[in-house]
Simulated scan of single mutants.
Amino acid sequence: MRICRFTTGDDPRFGLVDGAGEKIAEISGDPLYTRIELTGETFEVADVRLLAPVIPRSKVIAVGRNYADHAAEMGTDVPAEPMLFLIPNTSVCGPGDPVVIPAALTQEVSYEAELAVVIGRMCKDVAAEDAQSVIFGYTVANDVTARDLQRGDGQWARAKGMDTFTPLGPWIETDLDVSDLSVRSRIDGEVRQDGTTADMVHGIGAVIAHASAAFTLLPGDVILTGTPAGVGRVEPGQRVEAEVEGIGVLENIFVSDADDEGTD
């Protein structure tokens, strides 16, 4: 089942997307908290604006260096345990939204295509083998990073957490075997990353067990599971696509906030 969040110019709505990704059947309420019931209204995907499929009410948890090839290209070791960091929920944006680079803060921004996990119920101390029972579904993420701030700050809060730096979408897939899915990114149509979830150092069960040992997980929390090799710099004006097999393509244009400055 594919669940999207969308608008026709009014308040956000939720819907079920067909297998072709072309039609939406509207449902009532937020499916994370209410039973899924069809309203009877249908829409063409091309006629609506897709929004981030979930806006975490609590947190985004990300896993660093969870692909050995990416750790190697960054000149770092693979952590013995999942290396977790938090991203504020205010960094989330949706498919088609501009990713805004604050020119006064960073001059080196990069993309990271990732599989994202959406938590479906409140939980704590989840065993790795029970992780599937707390997962609502999966979506695509781009873990945008200001590399200069990441190096200079000594921690990753600003580098990963600025407004619009966590695009999610295009929808949530609730029924998916994520053991071996391709994870790709493209800049202006050119492939930059081409990996597979089978190469995760720490699997999703282990990540959820590790995270839930430290934090209570809440419905709508999002876990970013790491990125394969091939990350690099993106410039204002470039279009970045992050794609996970079985889910879809998340596309965003990167812009500089300096472009919005008026002239006298």
Score class of each variant (00 low, 15 high):
22 E>G: 08
192 R>H: 11
118 V>W: 01
130 D>L: 02
33 Y>Q: 07
136 F>G: 04
54 V>G: 02
78 V>I: 15
68 A>R: 15
262 G>M: 14
188 D>N: 15
209 A>S: 15
263 T>Q: 14
173 E>Y: 03
229 A>Y: 01
181 L>T: 05
107 Q>M: 03
101 I>G: 01
115 L>E: 04
194 D>C: 11
193 Q>F: 10
194 D>G: 10
65 R>I: 10
30 D>V: 08
262 G>W: 14
26 E>S: 09
69 D>T: 05
106 T>W: 00
39 T>S: 05
23 K>L: 12
168 L>A: 12
141 A>I: 14
61 I>F: 13
120 G>Y: 06
74 M>T: 13
191 V>Y: 01
157 A>I: 05
194 D>M: 06
109 V>Q: 03
221 D>R: 01
214 A>N: 02
61 I>P: 00
203 G>E: 13
252 N>A: 03
148 D>K: 11
101 I>L: 12
134 V>W: 12
223 I>C: 01
95 P>D: 07
71 A>G: 04
33 Y>N: 08
164 T>D: 03
51 L>I: 09
89 N>Y: 10
223 I>A: 00
238 Q>Y: 02
186 R>A: 14
204 I>F: 05
138 Y>E: 11
34 T>C: 13
122 M>H: 03
107 Q>L: 02
190 E>K: 15
142 N>W: 05
214 A>Y: 02
53 P>I: 09
16 L>S: 00
193 Q>K: 11
112 E>R: 13
195 G>I: 07
28 S>N: 04
215 F>K: 08
25 A>F: 05
106 T>A: 06
213 A>F: 04
35 R>K: 15
130 D>E: 14
75 G>V: 02
231 V>W: 00
235 E>V: 07
255 V>M: 12
249 V>Y: 10
29 G>P: 07
54 V>R: 01
234 V>D: 00
53 P>R: 12
119 I>Y: 03
241 E>S: 14
